[in-house]
Design a protein around this nucleic acid. Sequence first.
DNA 1: CTCGTTTTGTTCTCGCGTTCACAAACTCCT
DNA 2: AGGAGTTTGTGAACGCGAGAACAAAACGAG
Lengths: 220, 220
Amino acid sequence: MIPEATVARLPVYLRALTALAEGGIRTCSSEDLASAAGVNSAKLRKDLSYLGSYGTRGVGYDVDYLRYQIAREIGVTHDWPVVIVGIGNLGHALANYSGFRSRGFRVVALLDADLDRTGELVAGVPVRPFDDLEAIASEHAVAIGVIATPAAAAQDVADRMVAAGVTSILNFAPAVISVPEGVDVRKVDLSIELQILAYHEQRKAHETGREVAAAIGGDQ
Amino acid sequence: MIPEATVARLPVYLRALTALAEGGIRTCSSEDLASAAGVNSAKLRKDLSYLGSYGTRGVGYDVDYLRYQIAREIGVTHDWPVVIVGIGNLGHALANYSGFRSRGFRVVALLDADLDRTGELVAGVPVRPFDDLEAIASEHAVAIGVIATPAAAAQDVADRMVAAGVTSILNFAPAVISVPEGVDVRKVDLSIELQILAYHEQRKAHETGREVAAAIGGDQ
DNA sequence: CTCGTTTTGTTCTCGCGTTCACAAACTCCT
DNA sequence: AGGAGTTTGTGAACGCGAGAACAAAACGAG
C-alpha cells in the first residue's frame, strides 16, 4: 500500500523523468531527479522505495526504466477514457488541453446540458447532449469523469455520473459534492487557490507594515 | 499563527457561509456549516478557534459575522489586483471566470508574448504585450500573478514577475518553477490530478479483478 | 433562581508524513 | 584484489494534523 502523499507526487516524478529523457539523459541520481521535481532527495528515495528497488547504489536510476515503472504503478501505460461535462470556458480549455492525450487520457465525449451546443466541434470532438452520458459511459467503459459545470449543476452531474458507472470524478465546479463510498473525488478550485495566496500575501504586508511602523514610530 | 491546513480550508468555509447566507440562513451550528463545507464538525470548530471565539455556546455562529471575520482573516475584504500571463485556452477561461471578481480579485491585465494577440479583448480586458508587465505591476501594485503559459515559458515568466514585485504566483503550467525566498507559489496541474485518480481507479480494477479471479479460480 | 439542554472551545491521543542519518551495495582506480 | 568514493534504501526520531471526548458557557422552561 502506497501512502497517499506519495501517490500525489508520483506524477510529478513521472513528468520530471520525461523532461530528463527528452534532454537525452539516460541515468540520474536521486539528487538530480529530486531537484527536477522540486522535492528533497530523501523524500524522493523514500517515495520510490514504496514501488520497489529500481535504482542501483553508487549509480542512480535508469531514466527510461524508472519512468516505465512509475507509469505502470500509476496506471497510465494505457489510455483512460474520460468524459467532460460542461463545455463553457473551462470545458473548452480542458478539451483542448494537449496534456491529457499525452499523459494517459483520451477524451471520448464532451457533454453539455445546453442543446444549442450539440454538434459543435471542440478540439475535434463533437459536443453531445448530457443525456447521452449513460450510453457513452457504457460504450467506452468510462471510469473517470470531469465536471466543469456551474456550481448549481455539479451535484446532479455527479449523481448521474455515478449512476452511469463513473467511479472517479475530477470536480472543477466551486461546490462540495457528495458521492457514495468507493467513488473518488478530487477538487480543483481556482478561486480557493488564489485566496490561499491572498492570505499569505496579507501576512507579508502586515509583517512589512509592522516593520515600517516600528522603523518610523519607534518603540511606543 | 494559523496552521497551513486550516488556511487551506478557510476559503471553503467562506464559500459555504456565503451559500447559507444566500439561502436566508442567519445562524448555523458547527454541524450545519461542517456538512455544507464537507468536513467534520470537530475539525471545523478547531479551525475556527484559531481565528478567535466568534461563536456562541448553545447557539452557534452568526452567518454574516463569521463570514466577515473569515474574509478579514484571509484578506479578501478588499480586492487584490491580479495579472494573468498566457492567454491561450486556459488563460481565456481564467479571464472569464466570474468567481475571481466575486471573491476578492480583480484582473487588471492580461499579458501574452504573442504580439498578434495584443489589443484582443477578453472578458472586457485588452491583451497587452508581456513586456508591459513591469509597468502594469508597479502602476497597480500587483502582488499576485497567474501563469497560464506553456511549460517552457513558465520559469522565465516567473522570474520576470518576481523582478516586477510579484510575491505570490499561481502556476498552471505543467512545470516546476523555482523562486526566491519570500515568494509563494501554488501549483494547479490538471493532468496530475487525473493521474492520481487513475492510480486509485487502477487499484479498484485490480481489487475486483482479484475478487473475480478468486471467485472463478478458487484458491489455487 | 435553578436545572436541563444545546453547542462551542479545548485538551489529549493517535497516526501519518517528513527528515535525518547510516549501513549496504555498487563502481572505479590502482 | 582491495580500497576509496558514490549513491541507494531504510530504520528511527520528530512534528503536525485529525478526531474523539469533555468541560465551560449560554439559553430556556418552570
